[in-house]
């Protein structure tokens, strides 16, 4: 895991200021979606080696949810973006 995260709102911060929720690529299905879609959304997670997009919250800072794209193996962080902006861009 990274030691420092560059919050787009607050700047460089130690990882202790963040809490991690997990996979950011999941999209909440429509309430009418299939059982399988909901099962995948709620229960099924991959554990990739390499590039991974996660939801992190800057809990001790701006309280914003962020999308952190990082490498689970090298710990390199590729990008950090505001999750609401990312969600809007994704058309949600």
């Amino acid at each position: 895991m990274a030691s420092l995260i560059h919050c787009p709102h607050c700047g460089v911060r130690p990882k202790e200021e963040f809490s991690i929720r997990g996979d950011a690529s999941l999209v909440r299905p429509d309430p009418e979606a299939s059982d399988e879609a909901w099962n995948d959304y709620v229960h099924i997670r991959s554990n990739p080696r390499g590039r991974y997009r996660e939801h992190w919250q800057h809990a001790a800072g701006c309280r914003r949810w962020l999308v952190v794209e990082r490498d689970t193996f090298t710990h390199e962080v590729f990008s950090v973006a505001d999750a609401a902006s990312a969600a809007r861009e994704a058309g949600r």
Binding site: H55, A87, R92
Partner: peptide, 14 residues
């Protein structure tokens, strides 16, 4: 609080 922030920012930013 954190759950609500997640819902507001990630699930329903509209």
């Amino acid at each position: 609080m954190s759950h609500m922030e997640y819902c507001a920012q990630v699930l329903w930013p509209e």
